[in-house]
Structure formats: structure tokens, C-alpha cells
Amino acid sequence: MYCIETSELSYQYSRQGNELNRVNLRVKEGSIYGFLGPNGAGKTTTLKLILGLLKKQQGQIKVFGEDFDPHRLSVLSKIGSLIESPSLYSQLTATENLSVWQKLYSCPKTRIQEVLELVGLGQTGAKKAGQFSLGMKQRLGIATALLHSPSVLVLDEPTNGLDPSGMVEMRELLKRLNKEHGITILISSHLLSEIEKLVTEVGIINQGKILFEGSLGELMQRQRSAGGIRLDTNNNAAAIERLIAQGLDARQEQDKIVLPLLARSEIAQLNRELVQHELDVYEISTVESDLESIFMTLTHL
């Protein structure tokens, strides 16, 4: 069952162009879904639509199988969210901030200390939230999102502004929440490297369109298949002609010839072929495409 599902979701802020164009997103229950895309790709708009912060224009949003609009209140009671920067009242302490939300969710008061301990803010005492560091504010934001024990967390770039150790801490916390508490997490980011160690499912969006959706395994598969062979000869133009004649997809890239990935025996055969036609081969190497370059390729189409 999908925890969050959008179909043909489109949105435009002004009459010029679509901010979102037929976005279909499927977040499986129990997964950590990484929603990736460069800045301005439409991630925040999608998440705001899922949370009802923007008025839906076209398409459908379902959360736990229920249509969002007619079941807004029951759906929101199951979602915890942190959109962009954390929402906190700067003149109140961490406990008071959580009390504001505790009353609205009608959850037990004991839950406040529980979530504060969970995010490592149990000892902040009388310190006002306005005096917190950015990392502490982010953690208080996560505590707010967790307060009512939601089934799904929607987090928009929660590691923005965190230092590397803060990012690692946040990642570990989210993994723990997913594994130990079974919370489904939808997390957006513009950096694949930041969340590739965390997510199980990935959706990539650019210019309001979904370019890829699938498991991290499928993306890795694409990584492997996106790899290739690099060749350098004394006459690359003649070599390319020769290779194309043999039915290979050869092209020149920065003074080198690039071919799709081949089996070891095929590479040896190809080398013999070129030498027999009096072409000197200076280099044969394999090119491995990392996830980051796939992401870049997808988002720069």
C-alpha cells in the first residue's frame, strides 16, 4: 500500500509556465523516500501540496488511501512535517514550544520529554528557542514533527544549514525512527550524496517533472548501465567509423572515444579489430558513472 500517492499533480503560481507538471509520486509504507532535485525543481511545492498548504489546482493526492481534501483533518493527524526552516516561537523554551503543539494534537504531556530526549534536547531547560543554534532548532523542528507519533514524516531539506556532524546525527536519527518506530519518511534534498546512505526509494524531479522514480537499487542499476568504455587511438575519427560500422554506439567526447559497457572478451576483440586496421590503441579503460553524475545527467536533460 502506498502511504502517499499523487497522480497527475500540476500546479502553477502564475499564468506563465507550470511549477509542477503531472507529478506522480508513490511513497511505499515503511520506506524512506528521497525526493531529489535541484533548487527550484518543485520539491517544496509538491510537499506543500501534499500537506494542504497550497490549494490544489489539478490532480489527486491520497494519503493512506484517503483523498486529502475531504479528509484533511484525519490525514493531518497522521503526518508530522518540517517544511524548510523549523517553526518555533523564539520567546518560548523547547518544552513550551512543544506544549503549544501538544495541546493541538491532544497527546499526553509526557510525550514532550520523550521527543526532546529522542532528539537530544532533553537538557535545554529554560533556554529560549531563539537562542538555540541552527542544529538545535532543526532538532526541535523534528521533535515537533514527531510529537503526536505520526505514521509518516514529511521533511523538506531538514539538513539545510547543518554542519557535517549535524547531518550525520540527523541521518542516524531518521534511520532509527524508520527502523525502530516504523515511521515512513518522505525527505527532500538537492544533494544526492546527502541522502543516498539513508533512503530506500528515490524520486528525482526537475523543472516540475518527475524524471525517475524507483528503488535505490534501480538507480544503482542505472548507474552500472550508464558506465562505458573509453578509448584513445592515433586516429579517433577513423576508429569511430570502424566501430559504428560494427554496430557499436561510439561517439567522441573530449578527444576520447566513448562506448557503452562491453564484456571483457568483446573489449579484447575490439582491440584486435582496431590494430588489424592499422589503428594504434593508446588507452582502453572503463568509465564508472557514480550516482551523483546520474543525478546530474537526469536533471540536466
Binding site: K48, L53, L76, I79, I83, E84, P86, S87, Y89, S90
Partner: peptide, 18 residues
């Protein structure tokens, strides 16, 4: 304006209340 100042409208509007 407290909600604007503290950036809290988005959190308030995702609570289960009309």
C-alpha cells in the same frame, strides 16, 4: 504577526484543526 515572524504558519496549518 507572531506566526509570520516565527515562520510558524506552515506548522500551524498542518495541525488537525479547521
Amino acid at each position: 504577526q507572531m506566526e509570520f515572524r516565527n515562520n510558524t504558519w506552515k506548522q500551524l496549518h498542518t495541525t488537525p484543526q479547521s
